[in-house]
Design a binder for these strands. Structure first.
Length: 552
RNA sequence: GCGCCCGUAGCUCAGCUGGACAGAGCAACGGACUUCUAAUCCGUAGGUCGCACGUUCGAAUCGUGCCGGGCGCACCA
């Protein structure tokens, strides 16, 4: 819609000989802040002031006189130099019909042929349950994936399992120690081991099912390794369960260990070696990342002969590179931002353009309780898990809360507010909008023997109230808004949109009646609009993974 | 020291590829249920958009410099 109007304006300028080369990209056609200014507004007149040496107002008036002849517009006004455009009724009616037809996929591009992309998120180490920070990453990543899918990409959702490093070893040692402590309480626990109670539970399970096997093992090393693998699988299952709690599922699980076992690391390094990008120094192997914008070269193989984590990550991204994505997005904790330049450099060494790899950084979640910040530490086992939170406040509230802030800003999570289950939580506000519509539909069926859930026609020209126009206007811009939010990696805009739509619905609801005794035509028209609005809400809910409520 | 993020109403945050009076929720105060669910709606009050220069017809938005908070600067993962 915006594009359509912009093109018309560009055409006019061309015809009038006013299309100066520097302004075409600067022409904005946007819905204005205030609805009374119209459906769309443009700033062209300001851009021309310099070239024409005339006041914006005068230029705007000239363009207005041409624009208002177009049947797509019902009215064109000039105010303070802005050109305000009002779209014709017919345009809006078609949008409402579209929303009714497309159900909970209103505006979605159904042919996913815009490209193939990969979004990797969460990727928590399988050494403990998911905590709040992971929850935020999970919600943001999932929402992004759904948004890109909505606008026509084929999206693969991926979880990278860090199961080859020291943490896994430490995990094994911790579990093994707890295992031994069952018979021998003074068995030493590793100093930097994982202290959470879940370690004891895993040990108990092992004691119950695998006691003989472990005790008969020849070396402690073997036993620790066995415990590590067992614990890893146990915790990965838990992680999957936890993610399911907030409607997050992955298409691909990639194991770091498998990358090594399948020679992926060698393969990737060979590729770089053949390009002449590796060299030896001080007994270690280095990659020339500084050629691609990193501040210095990085070690890939340590002087003791083992690979760095970076090497595995290169192999991992080489694998993604070979899978042929148009671009990839990694959702990372902000504490990793210093790591991005070197990974980007390595990836560019494969030969992809700079914008092939994108990272969305998630700032840390700070937890507050009783007005005090709660320090969370995985090592001490002292933290609130995602599961605990979901059980307390509900899935939808957790999703909505994590999705509602710009990922790249710090998030203060006040447990007391979240646990209060009160209307302080905005998710109730949007849910209520949906439930209200469903409630009206139930009443319509009961009192008027008219079921809006089934297909029906309506005369939309009867929708002339302010609130109705406001809703129709929202519907006409929703798709474009989602498109822009996706492309800019701004998932929190979805919650803003949802809130906005709910607010318009609540105002409408308060101001007007839908079940009208003696005017069936009007009733049908309003119910029809409600149905369109409900579909739009469902579409937004679906992106977030929130379940629409039929009643509250 | 260098790099990234943040600093907007008492609190939590939107707005930031420059544009029409700086917005919302919560908290405060005052109204609206014989009406399809008042988990709602309407109104009042509350702001030198961290500070200072600069660019511009126009700056919360862009640039530079400060101040304050967080994070990161490994042959760790």
């Amino acid at each position: 819609m915006k594009k359509e109007v912009k093109n018309k304006i560009v055409e006019i300028l061309k015809k009038e000989g006013l299309l100066f080369p520097d302004i075409e990209d600067k022409i904005k056609v946007e819905p204005p802040k205030e609805e009374l200014y119209g459906d769309l507004a443009t700033n062209v007149a300001f851009l021309l002031t310099k070239h024409l040496k005339q006041k914006p107002q005068d230029i705007a008036l000239k363009i207005k006189s041409i624009l208002e002849k177009d049947p797509m517009f019902s009215k064109v006004e000039v105010l303070n130099g802005f050109i305000n455009i009002f779209l014709s009724e017919n345009y809006y009616h078609n949008i409402v019909k579209k929303a009714v037809l497309e159900k909970d996929r209103f505006g979605e591009v159904l042919e996913k042929n815009r490209g193939k992309i990969n979004i990797e998120y969460v990727s928590a180490n399988p050494t403990g349950p998911l905590h709040l920070g992971h929850g935020r990453g999970a919600v943001v990543g999932n929402l992004l994936a759904n948004m890109y899918s909505y606008i026509g990409y084929k999206v693969e959702k991926e979880f990278y399992i860090n199961d080859a490093g020291n943490q896994i070893k430490k995990l094994g040692q911790s579990v093994y120690a707890r295992f031994r402590q069952i018979d021998q309480p003074d068995y030493p626990f590793p100093e930097d081991g994982y202290h959470g109670d879940y370690i004891k539970e895993i040990a108990k399970e092992l004691y119950h099912y695998e006691r003989e096997k472990i005790l008969s093992m020849l070396s402690e090393e073997e036993a620790v390794d066995f415990c590590a693998q067992y614990a890893k699988n146990y915790l990965l299952d838990k992680i999957k369960e936890d993610l399911k709690l907030i409607n997050v599922e992955f298409d691909i699980w990639t194991s770091e260990k498998h990358l090594y076992e399948h020679g992926k690391v060698e393969q990737a390094l060979n590729f770089l070696k053949n390009k002449g990008l590796l060299y030896e120094k001080d007994g270690a192997l280095w990659l020339k990342t500084s050629l691609y914008g990193d501040e210095k070269d990085r070690v890939i193989k340590k002087s003791d002969g083992t690979y760095t984590y970076f090497a595995a990550d290169i192999a991992y991204h080489f694998d993604k590179y070979e899978r042929g994505y148009d671009f990839i997005i990694n959702v990372w904790g902000a504490d990793h931002h210093g790591y991005f330049p070197r990974l980007k450099a390595a990836v560019m060494a494969f030969g992809v353009p700079e914008n092939w790899i994108n990272v969305v950084f998630i700032q840390l979640v700070k937890l507050f309780k009783d007005g005090q910040e709660v320090k969370m530490s995985k090592r001490s086992g002292d933290f609130i898990t995602l599961r605990e939170l979901v059980e307390e406040v509900g899935k939808d509230a957790v999703i909505y809360f994590f999705a509602s802030k710009d990922p790249d800003t710090h998030l203060n999570f006040d447990i007391d507010v979240a646990l209060s289950k009160s209307n302080e939580n905005p998710v109730y506000y949007v849910q209520y909008a949906h439930a209200r519509i469903s409630s009206v539909f139930r009443e319509a069926k009961e009192r008027f023997d008219f079921n809006p859930e089934e297909d029906f026609d309506a005369d939309l020209s009867l929708l002339i109230q302010e609130e109705e126009k406001s809703l129709m206007k929202f519907l006409s811009t929703m798709q474009q808004e989602i498109e822009e939010a996706a492309v800019k990696n701004q998932p929190h805009k979805i919650t803003n949109l949802t809130y906005d739509l709910a607010s318009k619905l609540h105002k409408y609801y308060y101001q007007h009646k839908f079940l009208i005794e003696n005017d069936e035509k009007l009733m049908r028209a309003r119910l029809y609009l409600l149905k369109a609005v409900r579909n739009a809400l469902r579409t937004l809910f679906r992106l977030m993974g929130i379940t629409p409520l039929e009643r509250m």
